[in-house]
Amino acid sequence: MASAALGGHRNWVLRLCKQGAAILQPRVPAQRTDCRMKSSVQYLARKDLPKLAYQKLKGKSPGVIFLPGFASDMNGQKAVALEDFCKSLGHSCIRFDYTGCGSSEGNMKECTIGKWKKDVLSILDDVSEGPQILVGSSMGGWLMLLAALARPEKIAALVGVAPAADHFVTVFNQLPLEEKKAAEELGEWKLASKYSEEGFYTIPYAVIKEAENHCLLNSPIPITSPVRLIHGMKDEDVPWHVSLQIAEQVLSTDVDVILRKHGLHRMSEKDDIKLLVYTIDDLIDKLTTLG
């Protein structure tokens, strides 16, 4: 992966291509989307599994599916902005809540990376139609990769926003030995977070151990579809180097890493969302042309 010095001009982003080139590109304003959606929440019933809440906008392929971050839901700024954008183009879009989150059934404390991966696959198998662009935010970026490995025939492209591949395991393994032992004995780990009212999320120790079965960054990732990874360099939760690791490990040769010098973890500022929409617009144009 090539490295390059970032200029201080805030109207530019650094785009790193898998082939090693570093290209400075101006951010292109997103198309205006003045109409809000009137889609209503629906529920996907699953045998022996909690119902999943989702909203589906019908339209052309490739469709877009948004995968929220940890403890987030389908009503976040990025998810709603993507639905608006897809409506403006006439493409399909699906937003949904993981088990135990938002309007879906289930208990979040009983969920694992594996269970949430099943949620994504349920949406892909039973709600979506045709090839899909998965857009994963934070933990959703991890699940996006896992889903692409499980259903490669359904994936047109991947877009990760501060993708948190292996995150729980990586952070836990960096703890001092005594803290890891304490978490094992207590059966839970308190993960500090400014997004929680308590200042931390309580993660069951069993969830950390289960997540080890889904780690990706220590070996090649056999994904061959186009991949775009957008990451803020001021991200204090998931280091932007994680996006570079993902780019190095995926087998696809069509991989771009886009770094925003002043971007934060959530990447939900107006210009951040414009960049996300531009990236997806570019992908749809490319995929449609190839098709």
Rank of each mutant, 00 (worst) to 15 (best):
A4P: 08
A4Q: 14
A5D: 15
H9Y: 11
K18F: 12
G20M: 05
I23M: 14
I23H: 12
R27A: 08
T33A: 15
C35L: 14
M37Y: 12
M37L: 11
Q42T: 02
P50D: 04
K58Y: 09
G59R: 07
K60L: 15
L67P: 04
D73H: 09
D73I: 03
M74D: 03
Q77W: 03
D84V: 05
D84I: 09
R95H: 03
T99N: 07
S104M: 12
I113R: 04
W116A: 03
V120W: 00
L121F: 01
S122L: 10
G130I: 02
P131V: 04
G136N: 01
G140H: 06
W142D: 00
E153F: 09
E153R: 04
V159L: 05
V161F: 01
P163A: 09
D166R: 00
V171M: 08
F172G: 00
L175N: 06
L177A: 15
E178N: 10
E179R: 03
K181R: 11
K190M: 13
Y195R: 04
S196T: 11
Y201H: 02
Y205A: 10
E212C: 02
N218P: 06
N218D: 15
S219N: 15
P220V: 14
P222N: 07
I223A: 07
R228N: 06
L229F: 05
L229P: 07
P239L: 13
W240F: 15
Q245T: 15
A247W: 09
E248K: 13
E248A: 14
Q249V: 07
V255P: 00
H262D: 10
L264A: 14
R266F: 12
I273S: 03
K274G: 13
Y278Q: 05
